[in-house]
Design a protein around this nucleic acid. Structure first.
Lengths: 222, 222
DNA sequence: AGAAGATTGCACTCGTGAGTGCAGTCGGGC
DNA sequence: GCCCGACTGCACTCACGAGTGCAATCTTCT
């Protein structure tokens, strides 16, 4: 969606119409903001991409600022939901902790590396100085809550004997760090699409190291 | 320097003068860009902060774009030098690998969390879409070279028996990830000044986990 | 059909900031 | 003392984009 240059992904066919223009506007806004940045993005273009008149944009969201905030919030919310869904799926099956962690890690990495996620992070970094509250809207929900959810799961895993006793929050923090840290360089801020195999390799390496530190008994790397 | 609001850190006393105005301009430019972002920063203000006439800015650097690029390059270069200096100091002393790693990790974290570094990263993220070559100027030198230098040191450490045999590049990657990853949330994109004790704790935790995975013999956490 | 509200296209105001031109000033070298 | 080049202050042009007003049109509800 982000990379799309086609003018109206949502509402061109029903050009003059009814549907949820608002959603189309927010989506288009995020797309354009992602490409141009806040200041360079002009409302006119957002309206065009949304397949809507500029006036309509101002009808739904009064300001460019408001538009930006809501677009970011919407994007963050959907990204958060995706990540949480992945984390929630981390359940203690038979006893194959390694495979489970690798799978979850890999899926988290895929989310982390897609275009929308990178755009969200770039915009957050970019406009954070001018929109300090953005951090609460985006980061507060995005990173912290994923970390907390992961900590919950790791705690369960620990109690079930899959991991050694540890501070689950710290463990989650390090697991996520081992996953996402290496991507900063590998995907060039999202400019380079990282092949699946590489994602898998990074996830495997992260789990290797993670399990060396946190596995329950006589654990050992691959 | 970044947080300073005083108009001329370098060249106000010798207002009409000779010295290296250019350096003052680049520094002022980075300061202003860091606070306002590229688009919102106006050349007039940069000139004022540098203690220089707007015209002089255009004399030294033709464009706002050029100004931005050079300011970023200068800031990145100095940041890189600082980080490399820290990594270079990682030498195999007696045999206290853990203490050495913790010290280096802690100093890297301090660099990573200071205002200039965060500003540099924020600007890179922010304007990367409009200045794709920025990544070569900044990131190419910044992250990769620090990683490479660290990999060199870890390889030496490994040969000397301080670490188990491993891919030093991957080890360096994970060590840096364990260090910087947790800071993303803890310092709120650089808005929250992280206390020394916390930096030290993160460094210790990173080294703990790192050594669990990469220590030579019968290594074990703290 | 008719009314109400949303939507549209267009033209407009207004502020802002990049970049330039010019005339005057300063400082150092000859 | 004088010249040259860098620097300065000021006023100016110009492009761009946010936000508004208005009249016409469409959609939907009754």
């Amino acid at each position: 969606m982000i990379g799309s240059t086609t003018p109206a992904a949502t509402g061109r066919s029903a050009s003059r119409g009814r549907i949820d223009k608002r959603r189309a506007i927010l989506e288009a806004a995020f797309t354009v903001f992602a490409v141009r940045g806040y200041a360079q993005a002009c409302v006119q273009e957002i309206a065009e991409v949304a397949g809507v008149a500029k006036h309509t944009v101002y009808n739904h969201l009064n300001d460019k600022e408001n538009l930006f905030r809501h677009a970011m919030a919407a994007a963050a919310e959907s990204a958060l939901a995706e990540n949480l869904a992945v984390v929630e799926s981390l359940v203690v099956r038979g006893g194959d902790v390694r495979a489970t962690l690798e799978d979850v890690g890999h899926r988290l990495l895929r989310r982390h590396c897609d275009e929308r996620s990178w755009a969200l992070r770039r915009l957050l970094y970019a406009e954070f100085a001018r929109f300090p509250d953005l951090l609460d809207v985006v980061q507060g929900g995005e990173v912290n809550r994923v970390n907390d959810a992961l900590a919950d799961r790791l705690a369960r895993l620990s109690l079930a004997g899959g991991l050694r006793a540890c501070d689950p929050v710290e463990a989650a923090e390090q697991f996520l760090a081992l996953l996402t840290g290496p991507m900063e360089t590998r995907s060039r801020l999202g400019a380079r699409p990282v092949p699946e195999a590489e994602l898998r390799a990074v996830a495997r390496a992260a789990v290797d190291t993670f399990l060396c530190a946190f596995a329950a008994g006589p654990a050992r790397g691959a």
